[in-house]
Amino acid sequence: MIRVVLADDQALVRAGFRLLLETEDGFEVCAEAADGEQAVASAKAHRPDVVVMDIRMPGVDGLVATRRITGDADLAGVRVLVLTTFDLDDYVYEALRAGASGFLLKDTDPVELLRAIRVVAAGESLLAPTVTRRLIAEFVARPGRRVDAKALRVLTEREREVLTLVAAGLSNAEIAGRLVISPATARTHVSRILGKVDARDRAQLVVLAYESGLVRPT
């Protein structure tokens, strides 16, 4: 059962998401939040698997709330899925940097939303990789958005290769196929990379790959 908190300032939107999730096997909506403050409180109270987070909310917005959730060691198992109306919203970039596990457009197909929540709950792959890569590429191309490439010196040559494929949006199974290794070995490589660079999940690995220059925007 995937436990979800819905955070959106529009009651109608929350009601629609709740109806979608509660009519689908394997999901439980454990709380709703009308702003970021409530979202953080709900995350602490219920420890959901995923917080579906709107960005633009009154008071404490979704960006600040995401930072608070991902920065709280007690909420390490809580993933944040950011919803946005605009696919070029600057807040999306900042949300990924703040530790969001991915994002989705609000006008996405309901089936895709369900899949996205499952993916984020599993923590195995980045959402909407093509769109995400395009957004991150535009973001890191701006001045002042770089990290020292030395941050990747802790990685082996194979791990750098795996990180490049993660940044390309490949799943563990796809990485295994590309490198002719087992899925378990691919998963182990990704886990080691996460630990070495102190990243929360694959979304942060993508940001790091671009910001360090390992992957160049195309």
Rank of each mutant, 00 (worst) to 15 (best):
D9G: 03
V13P: 05
A15Y: 09
A15I: 04
R18I: 12
R18N: 01
E22I: 06
T23E: 14
T23H: 13
E24L: 04
D25S: 08
E28C: 03
A31T: 09
E32D: 03
G36A: 04
E37V: 06
A39K: 04
A41S: 06
S42K: 15
S42M: 15
K44Y: 09
D49L: 06
D49N: 01
I55R: 00
R56T: 11
M57E: 07
P58H: 06
G59T: 10
V60E: 13
D61W: 08
L63S: 01
V64E: 15
A65T: 09
A65Q: 08
D72H: 08
A73G: 10
G77M: 14
G77R: 12
V78D: 00
V82H: 03
V82G: 10
D87W: 10
Y93Q: 15
E94V: 06
A95E: 05
G99P: 02
A100P: 01
S101R: 02
G102N: 08
K106T: 07
T108V: 15
D109N: 15
A116G: 00
I117E: 02
A121D: 01
E124A: 06
S125D: 12
L127C: 08
P129E: 11
T130H: 12
T130A: 14
R133Q: 06
L135Q: 05
L135W: 00
A137L: 00
E138W: 13
E138V: 12
R142V: 05
P143V: 07
P143C: 02
P143E: 10
P143A: 07
R146D: 09
V147A: 04
A149R: 12
A149Y: 04
L152I: 06
L152A: 02
V154T: 07
V154F: 01
V154R: 14
V154A: 09
E157A: 09
R158M: 10
R158P: 02
E159A: 00
E161S: 11
V162Q: 05
L163H: 01
T164C: 05
T164L: 04
G169D: 10
E174C: 11
I175A: 01
R178T: 15
V180K: 15
R192E: 07
R192A: 07
R200P: 05
R200Q: 03
D201Q: 04
A203W: 00
L208S: 02
A209N: 07
Y210M: 00
